[in-house]
Computed example of a mutant assay.
Amino acid sequence: MNKKKLIVVENAIKEIAKRDGVTVEFVKMQMKIAMMNGVRSTDSKAKSFWDNISGKGKILTPEELIIHTSELVKQRKSQE
């Protein structure tokens, strides 16, 4: 994982925790819960999304998800 991107993501998570008055660990745990709900979804679009970004059976970390999602957004913006 790119260290520079990881630092940016970790700082973003810290800012969210600070803004919400919770710990970084709490923010990450909430993200993991949301991610697991997505992975376990029976919705075909959600299932396809998670299978495409992580491969079947692999669970991303919250940091990996943020980096991956930001790269997808960049990619889509460049195609406009």
Rank of each mutant, 00 (worst) to 15 (best):
3 K>F: 04
57 G>D: 00
12 A>Y: 13
38 G>Q: 04
26 F>T: 15
19 R>D: 12
67 I>Y: 09
2 N>R: 11
2 N>M: 10
14 K>Q: 13
6 L>R: 13
36 M>Y: 07
48 S>R: 06
54 S>D: 03
30 Q>V: 10
47 K>V: 00
75 Q>T: 04
42 T>L: 03
40 R>H: 10
26 F>N: 14
67 I>G: 08
43 D>C: 06
17 A>N: 06
63 E>D: 11
37 N>G: 12
19 R>A: 14
46 A>W: 04
23 T>I: 07
46 A>T: 10
57 G>C: 05
44 S>R: 07
45 K>F: 03
79 Q>F: 09
14 K>W: 09
75 Q>R: 06
30 Q>S: 13
8 V>R: 14
59 I>K: 13
76 R>K: 10
43 D>A: 08
28 K>A: 00
32 K>F: 00
11 N>V: 07
41 S>W: 04
34 A>S: 08
48 S>V: 01
3 K>Q: 09
64 E>K: 11
19 R>Q: 11
76 R>P: 01
17 A>E: 06
1 M>Y: 07
44 S>P: 07
68 H>L: 12
58 K>L: 05
77 K>V: 09
67 I>V: 15
65 L>H: 06
20 D>L: 14
53 I>R: 03
12 A>G: 11
57 G>W: 01
28 K>Y: 01
9 V>D: 04
35 M>Q: 15
27 V>K: 09
7 I>S: 12
43 D>V: 06
3 K>L: 09
74 K>C: 02
40 R>Q: 12
57 G>Y: 04
54 S>A: 15
77 K>A: 10
36 M>P: 02
6 L>T: 14
45 K>P: 00
65 L>C: 02
2 N>G: 04
44 S>N: 09
9 V>F: 12
49 F>Y: 12
73 V>L: 11
